[in-house]
Design a protein around this nucleic acid. Structure first.
Lengths: 198, 198
DNA sequence: CCTACCGATCGGTAGG
DNA sequence: CCTACCGATCGGTAGG
């Protein structure tokens, strides 16, 4: 049986993601990686310059995916509550579509070198600001309760970013349902309440 | 100036927590640790048997703190909503009082050896069940909306456990306020709503 | 708590 | 993509 493989560099990154997720970046050796792929350790360096290159690729490519998914929603002219719901769903879909990369992204970004680390932190701040501005808007117009804005956004990210820890592809909840459940919970809360019609 | 030090074993663990939190368990060498303490690497082994011993101490002692803080609240005869609020506040206080240990607990538990790992997972399940039973009770009696129970509890833990990533001791929010804000948000949601009196 | 040291493994390079 | 190999560093032990 013949299989068409993706190119070697992507193959390396894919296997690396799995190993980094399972054992952590530092605990994964280039020998582990090469062994899993089925080549000699030294051969990896025909495709990559250094171990950290792989980490950089994983982190920055996923960062790109987050921005690509969320930015168009931020620019859309839709009600604030709906906007928040949609960015939550979009963010979670990126995570569930990239579970290995997400685990590395959230765990191992701090092992990036100084230069990459700085760039990474900047990107992350910019991304968080996208959510912060939606929350700010909602509070200003009275859609959302006025609570500490920073705290609010941190909580939203907390709830979203833990998803990769427990989500499994075979689950009875698909990723859109998870996003909507989470948005429901954050927006409407857990309590049984009588609501006046909108 | 004389200082009374805590005993050496505790000192080792305390410094280890800081280093593990900053650089990760695997990326921290016994030489790093010894250097930070100011002794020779080999001298560490007068106080501990192995590197993993330190990780075990950190993880299981913090697990104990979580149980100690939350169990009495679970046993109390108080309304379900209040009970959920209090376990959330208690859990977050354990985290904010043990920031280094919490970071290690949430990040590095997977580097425990097979035996400890199994024990750790069992404890964690038991702990999660404490929260799950409160949520279940609340849904049964109509205090909480009926949503997927497992999902609900995972979201609560997500929001709580991310705290160690951004909480800093000097913040204008103290840990009880953070717990209450979080409980508010999870219980009442973000939306501006008209509520009937309880 | 130190000196001296072990075998194993690390990320990476030279040269083909 | 491989063979052969580098210097550095790893967790840990022997013996005092």
């Amino acid at each position: 049986m013949e299989t068409t493989y993706i190119n070697r560099k992507d193959h390396i990154r894919q296997v690396a993601q799995q190993l980094f997720r399972k054992n952590g970046y530092t605990a994964t050796s280039m020998r582990n990686l090469a062994g899993e792929i089925g080549i000699e350790p030294a051969s990896l360096y025909s495709h990559i310059k250094a171990k950290e290159d792989i980490l950089q690729q994983i982190c920055f490519e996923l960062a790109g995916s987050f921005f690509d998914a969320v930015t168009p929603i931020c620019d859309a002219l839709i009600p604030t509550e709906e906007k928040l719901r949609r960015v939550i769903v979009a963010h979670i879909q990126v995570i569930t579509n990239n579970l290995d990369a997400s685990a590395v992204f959230f765990h191992d970004w701090r092992h990036l070198g100084m230069e990459s680390l700085k760039k990474f932190r900047t990107l992350r701040s910019e991304y968080e600001e996208l959510f912060r501005s939606i929350v700010r808007q909602g509070m200003a117009e009275g859609t959302f309760r006025k609570v500490n804005e920073k705290f609010m956004v941190l909580t939203i990210f907390s709830a979203m970013n833990w998803t990769y820890e427990w989500y499994q592809p075979g689950m009875n909840l698909n990723s859109e349902a998870i996003g909507n459940n989470l948005a429901d919970m954050l927006i409407n809360g857990l309590k049984t309440i009588e609501r006046l019609k909108d």
